[in-house]
Amino acid sequence: MPAPLASAQLPATPPASVARRRVVLLAGCLLLAALPAIAHGAGQPFLIATFTRFVIYAIAAVSLDLILGIGGLTSFGHAAWFGLGGYVVAIAAFHAQDASTLLGWGGSTEALVVWPLAIAVTALVALPIGALSLRTSGIHFIMITLAFAQMLFYLFVSVKFYGGDDGLAMQRRNTLAGADLRDATVFYYVCVACLVAWTTLCAAIRRSRFGMVLSGCRQSERRLLALGYPVYRYKLVAFVLAAAGAALSGALWANAARFVSPDMLAWVKSGELMVMVILGGTGTLFGPIAGAFVLLGVEQLLSAWTEHWMLILGPLLVLFVVFARRGLWGLVAGER
């Protein structure tokens, strides 16, 4: 039987830092809630769509942080789950639109049907892939997750029926009882609700016994094994959970863009998600949200300003790594 993990508690954070963290979190939540009002107030309502995009990517980044930051499993194929989730939603809508069937199912545009479906399908695909990938560790894990993601990428590129490389468009957003998702503000708040719910869930997981074991995997897998924990199973569950979170994010993105393409599964997208997590601060869960906002925001500002935006963004990232060692969250909340 595994020994109880009381001794493996995280080092106690000094109270001052806890207070600071709470303030920052509260301010972040308020800001998220106020963004649409700010956008309207500034006479720039289109910004709501931009912020929606940031929020959606933040969900994917948080889910990546669950395995990368907490479990120490660097997945370089996380975009595969993002894309898969999106494709499930778009394919369901595709069949509902032209009244064709997929394995006898007529498709659906009901959010409460297709979003959970996207999560379930993705989790189901992630299970065997995770089971195989987790036989490796370290850099090899990075590469094997990349390999599987590339296989899925090429799969969607080759499936002509669903648009292949050109992608698949959705005529309208999913329907959700009690909310008009076509309205930008409503959709924004739905996405924020998903982000808050998902981050809360992840934070709860981190504090749970399960999270402790996972965190232990990162610190010393050998010790956990010696203590009798079925480490492999813990990691596999975490892998599938993280995939599910990314699938939710992908499902939302399909709705936001009303368009999916293999581009969503590309390795570059996996890299971007990783950059968001590292930028925000690995293992902090809240950091990656900031990471997503800052990376996408800076990219958008710079690319609107000059076509040579990469000339600036590149060195900015380098400087950030060299001088800000603890990520954005470390800078604001004083916690790694």
Partner: peptide, 9 residues
Amino acid sequence: LATFGLLLF
């Protein structure tokens, strides 16, 4: 992250 930045640059 740093070498990704270099790549863009």
